[in-house]
Design a protein around this nucleic acid. Structure first.
Lengths: 124, 124
DNA sequence: CGATCATTAAACCATTCGGTTGACAATTGG
DNA sequence: CCAATTGTCAACCGAATGGTTTAATGATCG
C-alpha cells in the first residue's frame, strides 16, 4: 500500500500548504499544463512560479515531461492518496460528529424528535 | 458545509506538514494531554513544543482547556475534515473511478474503462 | 546564423520557521 | 509565606521560504 513515511508526509503537506500551489494543482486537475500556463494566473515572476512547481514536483504531486523547449506538467495523485491515507487514521474522529452536524442541519426539515431525552449531553 | 477558505487551508496543511506536530496529533487522538505530556516524547525544549502546540491551535486542530496551572489539550478534528474535503476534490484521480466529470475534463484519450470497483481501504 | 521563446540558474532580500535560553507569571503544596 | 511546578514570553540564532532581478541554457524558426 502507500507508504506513510514521515519525511514524505512533511513534503506533501508542505507542498499543499500554499494557496498558489493548491491553485496550480486545481489547474492541473483539468489537464496537462506547461510551466508558462501554470504561471500565467499569478501575479508573480515566472521564476517564482517555477520554484512552486519544483516544490510540487519534489512532493511527487507533479510529473514533468520535457518536450522540446516546453515543460509539460501533469498531476500525479499518488501523494494525495498518501495524504488521504494519513487523514483516514483520524476519520473516525469527525465522521460521527459530522453525522451529528448533518442531522442538526436537517433540523430545518421535519425535526426528528429525540427519542432519549436524557439530560446528559454527548461527547465533547 | 465546511468552508474551504484558502487561508484556512494554508494554516491546516502547514500545521500538518511537520513530523512533530503530526506525532502530537497522534498522541492527542488517544485522549487529552497536558502541554508537558505532549512535549515529553520529543528531544526539544518545552518552549519549542509549546510553539508547536500553538501552531496546531492556530489551525484549529487543538483545543486548550486551562485548569489551574496546567493546560489540557484535546484534538479538534474539524480542520482534518476540512482537509479531507479539499482532498475529496481530487479523490477521483486515485480511486480509479472514471465518472462523467473526469471524462468531461479529460476529453482526450479515454482509456477502456476498467470495471473494478476497488473498495477504498483505510490504512493502518 | 541569429533572433526569439520557454525555462532554469544564480544571487540577493525580507520574512518565517524551528529551535535555543533565560526571565517571567500563575498556580499549587509544604 | 515560600518554593516548586507549569507554561508562556521575549530575544536571539541559523536555515528555509517565497519573492525579486538578471543572466544563462537550449530549442525553434525565419
Amino acid at each position: 500500500m502507500v507508504e506513510l513515511d514521515s519525511q514524505t508526509l512533511d513534503c506533501i503537506f508542505h507542498a499543499l500548504g500554499d494557496t498558489t500551489r493548491r491553485a496550480m494543482l486545481r489547474d492541473l486537475a483539468q489537464g496537462e499544463r506547461t510551466v508558462s500556463e501554470l504561471a500565467e494566473p499569478f501575479a508573480m515572476s515566472l521564476a517564482a512560479a517555477s520554484k512552486h512547481i519544483r516544490v510540487l514536483e519534489a512532493a511527487g504531486l507533479v510529473r514533468r515531461d520535457i518536450r522540446g523547449r516546453t515543460h509539460h506538467c501533469s498531476l500525479d495523485p499518488t501523494p494525495l492518496a498518501t495524504a488521504d491515507q494519513w487523514l483516514g487514521i483520524y476519520r473516525r474522529f469527525w465522521t460521527g460528529r459530522l453525522d451529528a452536524l448533518e442531522a442538526a442541519l436537517r433540523a430545518e426539515a421535519p425535526p426528528p424528535p429525540p427519542k432519549k431525552p436524557l439530560p446528559g449531553k454527548e461527547g465533547e
